[in-house]
Design a protein around this nucleic acid. Structure first.
Lengths: 350, 350
DNA sequence: GGTTAACATTTGAACGTTCCAGAAGGGGAG
DNA sequence: CTCCCCTTCTGGAACGTTCAAATGTTAACC
């Protein structure tokens, strides 16, 4: 607690005029003391600062926002995720974002919208000049937010690359899913697994295909075949469990012993199948999930998982956002970050 | 998409004056059309509305906020939870809150603060009149936020009752942990378990003691002893696993077969211990967790858990907040909600 | 027909800040 | 001494809205 004023004090909130009167200067001088201190003579600045501290003055945000047309708020549409994996991810990301924006005096404003209308909310906040910019998170292929905001001339950055249009010229930050899939697969190869399957999402999921391509690439680089080893399912534990059983039933020249998965939910399904067959995760079968969710941490015996650097994503997002807001020409439109592997017992041979 | 204006349109944002000019009325009349439509003659209202729709006018939030001294923002300090159970809870709660506040045109503003100073952030937002009110979530015993905000005369509601001071006269909403503990225990009794243990937190946790008291009460009502059956540990899987082993080793007149737990993390630890002993959850041992987290849903074979009605908590919080903001006398200072039991296979006898 | 009252709308001021143009006070060059 | 520039500070205006009071309009009553 560094403030020198009395935090307990209630009473009327001091304004610029209050401070100016107390310090014997004009309003504008007080304003300058805060926004352009280099314009003031040293001793004036000091005197004004003292009064500001004494009264505990903080500029009224509404007035400042009205005058400067800048709210220092970042809008984020906070949509209900299906009961699934993404919840935990969002929580971690959101915290990083709040933390990062705070460093530059910005705050995060959450708004909701009917999932059936992906633009709902954006428009109203824009017209009422409630936020300076948006962070857009749900940018799977075909979502119209980016196009809409761009046409409206609204500042925004997406978490997620523009899948449809590689030439899209809005700013984005994303995590390299292919690199993640490769990390998982190469780790399983290192652990000595001969046949490594991929359990992923439907073909329509661009994120899923991206992650899968890392698996394909790693196997090809090791001169291995992927034929019959890539399975597409929906993202739930039971579908994954059954798919894993089916793959484990398959007795070719080599049995399948490695599973790289597009999500932790799927990885957990594989672990369930192992339990039902009496296979020991780690020793008999190697399993790697994706996203390092809470479930991966608490499930027995611990699920190795690809972790997205969400803290870093937030930092990059905010950095780019500042460039966009200051109308600087943006150097890179996109920033790709690399995930890391959190190794737990589900993939450790001994 | 019900708006009749062109969502694509960029250009200057229309103001009250724009609309007034177009409709041939004064600014104030347009303002009234929005805020007090009953003051206008029917056909005037209709005409103004038509222009508002046509131009896609939305009142400037900053100007409105400056004049009315109301930002329509609810502040929520969003603190990093330790890697643990509460994350998932927070996510579900936060979504409900965003959804509920949206219904009355409010938004949620997130701010962060150094965990070492529980008051950081509140003061600044208050002085800059950035938010109308706060929702305070981390109200374990001894947290100073409530007292601070009350002295400052700031509107707020806490999620969590004032443990220290039952006579505290601020508004709060909470979930009845004792009822939850009782639900879990009575369910285990119904399932035919003779000796039911409690695995909970350290005595310093008021929430933990509250939940535990439900277990105690249910056992006493059934004329059973609790002696030696209540264990206090820290909230992590491994501690719970070891404690469960220790309890399962105990061979009194009856073996312990029921476990009521203060959290899902602990419940999951018990399931791990069962797995290591070859005990079948459900058939041999009944386990009930608390909070219905993602982990409870995905772990094999499914963990029965006490679920907090977070959606309803949000609704009640917002309702009380509106009472506080309109300076109505508050009927009840506190609102206690009852949790429910989500039964999964970890507690089903067959 | 004139006085009142109720209704419908307008006008000027204010919220607290920053922008802009300009004033006051030095100091040096011509 | 005058002119000009530089530094430092000031006063009025403006951002877009709502409040409070004033104005104009219609209807109602005796």
């Amino acid at each position: 607690m560094t403030e020198t004023h009395d935090r307990q004090a209630g009473g009327p909130v001091p304004t610029l005029a209050t401070v100016a009167g107390e310090a014997g200067v004009s309003r504008q001088t007080v304003s300058n003391a805060l926004n352009n201190p280099e314009l003031l003579k040293a001793d004036t600045l000091e005197r004004v600062q003292a009064v500001i501290d004494k009264l505990g003055y903080t500029p009224n945000r509404a007035a400042r926002q009205l005058r400067t047309r800048s709210s220092h708020l970042i809008g984020l549409r906070f949509e209900q995720a299906e009961e699934g994996t993404s919840n935990a991810l969002m929580d971690r990301f959101l915290h990083s974002l709040v933390e990062t924006t705070a460093r530059t005096g910005h705050h995060v404003l959450l708004f909701s919208g009917d999932p059936s209308d992906p633009l709902e909310g954006y428009d109203e906040l824009l017209r009422s000049t409630a936020v300076d910019a948006f962070v857009v998170t749900d940018t799977y292929a075909g979502t119209p937010q980016a196009g809409f905001l761009q046409r409206r001339g609204a500042p925004f950055v997406t978490f997620g690359r523009p899948w449809d249009d590689p030439a899209a010229d809005h700013a984005w930050v994303d995590v390299d899913g292919a690199a993640g899939g490769r990390l998982a697969t190469e780790h399983l190869i290192e652990q000595g697994h001969e046949r490594i399957a991929w359990l992923g999402w439907e073909k329509s999921s661009r994120i899923g295909e991206d992650r899968r391509s890392g698996w394909t690439g790693a196997l090809h680089d090791a001169n291995r075949d992927t034929f019959g080893l890539g399975v597409r399912i929906t993202d739930n534990v039971d579908a994954a469990r059954m798919a894993a059983h089916s793959l484990l039933d398959d007795t070719g020249p080599h049995r399948i012993t490695g599973f790289a998965c597009a999500s932790d939910t799927i990885g957990i399904g594989v672990l369930h199948a192992c339990a039902e067959r009496g296979l020991r995760p780690g020793a008999d079968v190697g399993v790697v999930g994706f996203d390092d969710s809470l479930g991966a941490q608490v499930i027995w015996p611990g699920l190795t998982s690809v972790r997205q650097p969400l803290e870093q994503v937030a930092v990059e997002l905010v950095a780019i956002l500042h460039q966009v807001l200051s109308h600087k020409p943006i150097e890179d439109h996109g920033k790709m970050l690399t995930p890391s592997l959190v190794v737990r017992r589900s993939s450790m041979r001994q």
